[in-house]
Each structure stands twice: as C-alpha cells, then as structure tokens.
C-alpha cells in the first residue's frame, strides 16, 4: 500500500512539474523583458505568479520526499561526512540569498577545532542543515542574527549542530506541534513565507534515519528567537 502511495505521489509530482516548468519559464522570460517592456503593475503581478509557482514547487518536492521516506524508499548512502564543510556551503548560500533579496542578516559559523567526521548521507545532511538555516533566515527580520555552532558531545559519541536566531521565535503552544505534518504557525511572517509545513517533519525523519536526535528551544518571545539542534553519530574507522 505504501509503495502504491509512493508511486502515485511520484507520478503526480512528475505530471505537475511539466506545466510548472512552462508557467515559471514564461513568467521569467516576461519578467526579464525578453518579450518587451513591462509596466510596474505587470511586474508586480508576474511576481505574484512566480511566488505561487515557488510555493507549488516546494509542496511537490516536499510531498515527494515525505512519501518516499515514509514508504522506506529513501536509502541513505552512508559515508564519513565533514559537517563543517557542509555548514560553510549552506552559510555561503544563505549569505548570497540575503544579498540577492537585499535583506541584511549577520550570519556566523563556529566550529570546534578538530571536529570529528560524522557518519551520514552527504546530500541528506546538507538538506537537514539547509532547511534549518533557511527557516532561521525566513523567520528572522532584517538586521537579525543567525549563528551556526558545531561541537562534539564526546560522551554520547555525537556531533551537535545548533542553529540559533533572534527572530520571531515559536510560541510554547505551537512547539509541540512543530514537527507535525502540515503544521504552520500563525505569525504574519510565517504566513507571508512560502512553505508547506512539511519541511520540519522531513528533517526530523531524516535525522532519525541517521540515528541522530533533533530538538528545539524557544521562549516564544519575538526577538529572542529559537535554537534548533540536531546530532549525528561520530564516524568510527571501519564503519
């Protein structure tokens, strides 16, 4: 049954992506001015169409991901992974986004010296960290701060990553539902940000597939932000 469901979602996703490519592509061409000059209203309306296509695109990708995870069709390609290198790429990507969107954010990365490698699937570990840093970026107003901190928990044989921001935070009532599928908060910044409420459930499943742990802390007070933390097991020679 799970396999049928997964195949159904894969087929629907494929069928949706082709018309989405056409809509997005032609909107981009119009916006570039490649088909003639546009007035201010036309540019704005095309932006609205593009943002909604982006929402649809995230939804399709997330549905495909969660369906594949839940039916056991994602197989991790486990190998030694350097978390610092991945975090550097994710931070650099977010800084580029901050420049493109003209939204200044102070983003820093601190790693413990001689950090051990962890065992994981490089692409999926990147997806986990990228999702958490993107959330921090999305829900932190401009001129805010995001800190990524990576350190070893030698006692547990894990490396821990903390993504801390000083954004809108998460109300205590919402925290228990945060990892539920399709749950989204009601803060205006959440409502204004394209999302499906599937990102964190996917992240949690991926962390657990890696035999790691994930949790969060927030006072719920805007400006005090939140800290999302996850761990991955340290790579041992011969694994």
């Amino acid at each position: 049954m799970d396999r049928l469901k997964s195949e159904f979602v894969a087929t629907v996703s494929h069928e949706l992506r082709t018309p989405m490519t056409a809509i997005k592509g032609y909107v981009d061409i119009l916006t570039m001015g490649a088909a003639g000059p546009l007035n201010e209203n036309q540019v704005h309306f095309l932006d609205v169409v593009r943002n909604n296509i982006e929402r649809l695109n995230i939804l399709v990708s997330d549905l495909l991901d969660i369906s594949r995870i839940e039916s056991g069709r994602i197989i991790l390609e486990q190998q030694p992974v350097n978390l610092h290198d991945i975090a550097e790429e994710v931070v650099a990507e977010t800084l580029r986004r901050s420049q493109t969107e003209n939204k200044p954010i102070a983003l820093s990365l601190e790693s413990q010296r001689n950090l051990p490698l962890v065992i994981g699937d490089n692409g999926r570990v990147r997806q986990i960290l990228s999702n958490l840093v993107n959330n921090a970026y999305n829900y932190t107003p401009e001129n805010g701060t995001i800190r990524v901190n990576i350190h070893q928990d030698a006692e547990r044989g894990e490396v821990q990553v903390d993504v801390e921001d000083n954004g809108i935070g998460i109300r205590p009532d919402d925290q228990a539902r945060l990892f539920d599928r399709f749950f989204r908060g009601e803060h205006p910044l959440v409502l204004a940000t394209p999302g499906t409420g599937l990102g964190l459930p996917i992240v949690r499943q991926l962390v657990e597939m890696h035999k790691g742990r994930i949790w969060m802390k927030s006072t719920g007070v805007p400006g005090e932000g939140s800290i999302f933390s996850f761990t991955l097991p340290v790579y041992k020679n011969g694994e």
Binding site: A10, S13, H14, E15, R17, T18, M20, T21, I23, K24, G25, D28, I29, M32, I53, N57, S61, L64, R68
Partner: peptide, 27 residues
C-alpha cells in the same frame, strides 16, 4: 521532471553530462 535518485543515475549512466530538474529557471 523525473527527479528520483535512481532515474538521475540512469541518465548519468546513459552518458549524460548533467541532469537538470524541472522546473528550471531560464537564467
């Protein structure tokens, strides 16, 4: 639009240089 790992690998095994997933932006 076929974005599953196995499908991407089939494309690369067939000799393709790259696999660009739909939807892609013109730029």
């Amino acid at each position: 639009a076929k974005g599953q790992d196995a499908e991407i690998q089939t494309g690369l095994d067939a000799g393709a240089e790259e696999y660009l997933l739909k939807p892609f932006a013109p730029d």
